[in-house]
Design a protein around this nucleic acid. Structure first.
Lengths: 192, 192, 192, 192
DNA sequence: TATGAATGAGACTTCATTCAT
DNA sequence: AATGAATGAAGTCTCATTCAT
């Protein structure tokens, strides 16, 4: 009789977009952005191709939404990492980072793939530039508190290091001495 | 109508493969591997599509050959970098590296793109794993000579740092403080 | 929760269909029948897609209703054109016609587009055949009163002329010598 | 062994493009431009969809080629129409025109449909504007020789008339008094 | 009466690859 | 060794229409 209420619709919409984004994330993390087709995502999400275009105007916009969701999820995690003691905070960051590499390497690959597309998709560049400067500020503050002489440059070192180690893990996988590196870096930055 | 001699054929072959590989490199560096089509490469190389399949069984094999050639070219450059003084050698490496980022960032992007495909294309993983251990050995030896306490771990740090800084440059481009980082890293590793 | 009365319902129905038909007309005049989607019409009309299918079983039937409405609207205008003096009536027709071309060319395009679909949509053919014979009768009577020798054939000439001039205006637009033609035709048919 | 000669290739190409253009013409004349799909054309022409894009970069470019070919074909016919006696030439034009309406009405519809798209496809407008002015010149010259007082305006009348009559035939089909109109118009313009 | 989420067929297009010559 | 015409699977996207509420 009467149409669905706004609340009902909102629920339906968020469930569907949720299913789609999750399916997209799963597949793109596994196969990469370009290699994942809209059809596959629709099938994985259990919806029709048409519905996807109901919620996301294009594959690119789906990527956009996916990135934003991923960043939001990431920020929730960052909340749990903070400690009163800056050395502990930094250690938590490193431990979290290496655990990510150990457990969610595919996600790392996806993020890397997307970052490499910064040139092709302007919104990627925009988002990442912002996030990057946030992270640099975060590390820089931490390192200042820890008494480092060049906290800014050292922040860039840490950022680069993390990207680079992630990258190396992606490429050589099991061969990377991940445990040793974790210990070495934590010792170097947090233990003194 | 006499048949071509083996030597003539060999020359023709190497000229054609050369043209093709150079064209492929140029285009893939510019647009990426996936976005570069066989047709474009053939046109850029001035040969027919058919001929490409005469020399390379598939696009993937062309990539394989391209990687090997790129590595060979890279090795020639590494020869000019070596000095009697290990600190100077290391500084040369860093200077070469930052200049690459400044002048040939696109090539760096291409290499990164390919490395991320290590999972998809086994030969990529194989080649890179070998090269990586070579580089690690090279840095490790250098750092040993320079008196570093943990030359192996530190070598991984340097390797990661380079990957990571390259990555960051790719993503944020002009915003990256490349000159400062060059100075900071050279000071840190080579000046004392 | 008392049910709406029949009268209320009737009013609602006619308001909704009115809004839909007007929106459809506006958009189809602008973009053409095929290029106007049901979604666009619904949005322009401020109703839901579902409601459209409540009133019109298909896009084709919407077109049908639109044509009928357009013809009804046209007939109202024709009422204002009639004069005691047949020469004046004919001149009024011509002046109205050329002003339509000057001011509402898009509508003319839409009508032409639809007429060309007569084969595809039988109801179009049916409606137009009836209207055409009415117009021919109208012109024929007028020309008889004006003393033309072959009023029937001449009526067909006038009808064809109007279609053809409208068509030419659509195609070449500004380049068509619309003012000269108006004067020439009025002189020819109404001035003597 | 050796690749095909240029001549062989040229022949193959022109055969294929010929097949494609003919199939496209057949289908578009029957169903209209928009309603004819690339797939249908490929099937009708007995080639693959891919091949179509080998020869025509897009559906729009196929239309472009089709229009040009149609105009070329039309010009060949116009050659046979010319006579020393201008009255005879004009009569030939009218007879040819009415025969077209009798025998190839579908083609007329196609041409009309395309002309209505002049706004959407700039190349259509360009081509048609040129052709139109050629025809107007042709008629104007003829009418001058025949001693008409306002040959230019009268040329526009004739052009419009032909478009309009064609249009009417398309719409009402069999009901149109085509034979009477032919006689009437020829009498009016050619029998002094 | 009214909504809008959902569907699925079908549109245009790209591209690695094959093969007759 | 070399050509380029031909293929067909797969991709992204649109849209009229249905249906639960």
């Amino acid at each position: 009789m009467s149409p669905r209420s706004q609340i009902q619709n909102e629920k339906i919409r968020s469930e569907s977009t949720g299913k789609i984004l999750e399916a997209a994330f799963r597949l793109m993390v596994k196969d990469g952005y370009e290699s994942t087709s809209i059809s596959q995502i629709a099938k994985e999400a259990g919806v029709s191709k048409g519905l996807m275009y109901n919620y996301f105007r294009s594959k690119e916009e789906l990527l956009n939404a996916l990135i934003k969701k991923t960043i939001r999820d990431g920020e929730k995690i960052m909340g749990n990492i903070y400690s009163e003691n800056p050395a502990v905070t930094l250690e938590n960051v490193f431990r979290w980072f290496f655990n990510e590499l150990r457990n969610n390497l595919s996600e790392w690959r996806f993020v890397s793939e997307i970052m490499l597309k910064a040139d092709k998709y302007p919104f990627v560049k925009e988002i990442i530039t912002i996030k990057m400067s946030e992270y640099m500020k975060f590390f820089s503050d931490l390192l200042t508190k820890l008494g480092f002489k060049n906290p800014e440059s050292e922040a860039y070192i840490i950022g680069g290091l993390m990207d680079g180690i992630g990258f190396a893990c992606l490429v050589v996988g099991e061969e990377y001495p991940i445990d040793e590196m974790e210990k070495y870096i934590i010792d170097k930055y947090c233990k003194n």
